[in-house]
């Protein structure tokens, strides 16, 4: 555990070093969020009655999504891991007394959380000062906020577990880039990254909510704004835990197969 924590610290101070990159990233997120909200406003003005969430809740959703981008975006994968698989350096990792899956999982977790912590506060503070309904609102209740934090972490772990599957497929395919792009697109769409899940037609929504992708950002962001509460919320959380367990189990399974393959083929 200690080695993972020191890795987290290392990443954190590395992240701090690139200050221009950090400022630029934060500015990007402001603009991105603002444009998204202006778009929703245009649709709201076109037909307010067709809006599935309140405008306020939608705006909070957008800002939260921007603030915690690093936790949930599938494109935020680690090139080093892909490279080490492709160029065979992975064999060195095998010499160390660490399970490859666990190490990469820890590494991705460290990367995503350190980045999110660095970046979330400016966005959150900025959007808190925007006039209602365009800014971020206070959480509906204390318990909603606590559940929000729990599901935020769960959601990030589900995302990481899914990305692990993508890393693992690289052991078996020549082109990781293609697989990666397809995976990224699917995740983005089905987790409500393009438009929030409530904006989809109802039948499709029902299906989407059962998929592992809905267990990523969707749950936490909607709990925060009160869009998801009560029994629905509990169901969603149970699903999150379910998918986390399933994805990790599959990932570990593939990992074992891949390690056998490396040992036999010599990398």
């Amino acid at each position: 555990m200690k080695k993972y924590f020191s890795f987290f610290k290392l990443r954190f101070s590395m992240g701090l070093q690139y200050r221009t990159a950090a400022f630029a990233g934060i500015a990007t997120q402001f603009v991105w969020g603002s444009m998204e909200i202006l778009m929703f406003r245009a649709f709201y003005e076109a037909d307010a009655s067709a809006f599935p969430m309140t405008l306020q809740a939608t705006c909070s959703y957008v800002w939260m999504q921007q603030a915690f981008l690093a936790l949930f975006m599938a494109w935020f994968m680690e090139n080093e891991i892909f490279d080490s698989i492709v160029d065979g350096n992975i064999s060195y990792e095998l010499c160390r007394p660490i399970n490859v899956y666990d190490m990469w999982f820890a590494r991705s977790t460290a990367n995503r959380f350190s980045r999110a912590i660095l970046r979330c506060f400016p966005v959150l503070i900025f959007s808190a000062f925007l006039p209602a309904p365009f800014g971020i609102m206070a959480p509906v209740s204390v318990s909603a906020f606590v559940w929000f934090l729990i599901t935020l972490i769960l959601g990030a772990l589900v995302t990481i577990a899914f990305c692990m599957l993508v890393y693992m497929t690289c052991f078996f395919t020549v082109s990781s880039l293609g697989v990666r792009m397809v995976a990224v697109s699917v995740v983005e769409f089905f987790q409500g990254g393009v438009i929030p899940i409530p904006f989809f037609p109802e039948k499709l929504q029902k299906v989407m909510e059962l998929l592992p992708f809905a267990s990523m950002q969707n749950v936490a962001l909607r709990i925060y704004s009160g869009d998801l509460a009560g029994v629905q919320m509990k169901k969603a959380i149970i699903l999150q835990v379910f998918w986390l367990v399933v994805l990790v189990a599959i990932g570990k399974g593939i990992n074992r197969l891949a390690m056998k393959k490396i040992v036999i083929q010599g990398g």
Binding site: F43, D47, P52, G178, R180, F199
Partner: peptide, 26 residues
């Protein structure tokens, strides 16, 4: 070929976003 398909999918997402917004708002 896979990258081409990937490129297609990335912007296809954007299209789907527009499509479903218009399903609702016209």
């Amino acid at each position: 070929i896979l990258t081409c398909i990937g490129q297609f999918l990335v912007s296809f997402n954007v299209f789907l976003g527009v499509f479903f917004m218009f399903k609702r708002f016209h």
